[in-house]
C-alpha cells in the first residue's frame, strides 16, 4: 500500500472530530473520501499532510511513518495536497506559483519539463503564466492549485473538493485531467461531497459520518447503496 492510515484520531484542542479512521490507497489507485459537511474529510487529509497533528493512530506512506515528521518534510516523500478552496498565492504570478510547487531537489531539477507537462494539461495556465494568481477565475485558480501540486512530482495527489463552485464545463475539463493522471499511474485521493461525481472517477470509496468511518467499498456497490443514501439524504 502506498498510503495507510490506521485508527486515526484527530482533535482540535479538547474537541475530537475524527475517531478511529482507517483507510488505504494503493499505488496508481484512485480513491474517494466522501461524507456530508463536517464529517471530518478535510481534517483527515490535513492530518495526512501534517497541517494538523494526529492525536492517536498511525499514517504510513510507502511504509514510512509520517506522524513525527513536520509538514514540510512530508511533501518531498511524494505527497501533494491541493487544499480546499484552491489557496493559490494571490500576489505571485502563475509561473511563480508553479515553481513554488517544485521545491524539493528532485522536483526542482525537472521543473521546466514538469511545467511543460502541466501546460499541456491546462493550456489556460500557459496563456496566463505572467498574470498574478488573484486575477485568475475560480476555475483557473483550481487548475493552478492542482498544477502547483503536480510540480512536486507526487506519487499521491490529494485533492480537497476540487469541483466546488466550478462551472460545469470547467468541472468536466478537470475530470478529464484526473483521468489522464490516473492513466499515467498517479494515485489520487479525492475529497468530495458530490457522491456520484466522485464515485464515477474513483475505484473505491470511503464514507465518513460524524468523524467515523461509516462504510467503505468498491465504487460500483456504493453508488446504489441505501446506506449511502441514508447518510447523505437522511432518508
Amino acid at each position: 500500500m502506498l498510503l495507510e492510515v490506521e485508527n486515526l484520531e484527530v482533535a482540535y484542542g479538547d474537541y475530537q472530530v475524527v475517531w478511529g479512521v482507517s483507510l488505504a490507497v494503493a499505488a496508481g489507485e484512485s480513491v474517494a473520501l466522501l461524507g456530508p459537511n463536517g464529517s471530518g474529510k478535510s481534517t483527515v487529509v490535513n492530518t495526512i499532510s501534517g497541517l494538523l497533528p494526529a492525536k492517536a493512530g498511525d499514517i504510513r506512506f510507502n511504509g514510512v511513518s509520517l506522524v513525527d515528521r513536520p509538514t514540510h518534510a512530508r511533501a518531498p516523500l511524494g505527497i501533494a495536497h491541493v487544499l480546499e478552496r484552491r489557496r493559490v498565492f494571490p500576489h505571485l504570478t502563475v509561473q511563480q506559483n508553479l515553481f513554488l510547487g517544485a521545491w524539493h531537489s528532485a522536483a526542482r531539477a525537472a521543473r521546466g519539463e514538469t511545467a511543460q507537462r502541466i501546460f499541456g494539461l491546462f493550456p489556460r495556465l500557459l496563456e496566463r503564466q505572467n498574470q498574478l494568481a488573484r486575477t485568475l477565475s475560480g476555475g483557473e485558480q483550481q487548475m493552478l492549485a492542482i498544477g502547483r501540486g503536480l510540480m512536486a512530482l507526487p506519487r499521491l495527489l490529494m485533492v480537497d473538493e476540487p469541483f466546488l463552485g466550478l462551472a460545469p464545463q470547467v468541472a468536466q475539463q478537470l475530470q478529464s485531467v484526473f483521468e489522464t493522471l490516473k492513466s499515467e499511474g498517479m494515485a489520487i485521493l479525492f475529497i468530495e461531497q458530490n457522491v456520484r461525481l466522485a464515485l464515477s472517477m474513483a475505484g473505491r470509496g470511503y464514507i465518513l459520518e460524524g468523524g467515523r468511518l461509516a462504510i467503505a467499498g468498491p465504487a460500483a456497490t456504493l453508488v446504489d447503496s441505501p446506506e449511502v443514501r441514508r447518510i447523505f439524504l437522511g432518508v
Partner: peptide
C-alpha cells in the same frame, strides 16, 4: 500569503 499552502508544498 498562505501559511498552510506553503507548508504543504514542503517549505
Amino acid at each position: 500569503d498562505d501559511h498552510d499552502a506553503a507548508a504543504s508544498l514542503g517549505i
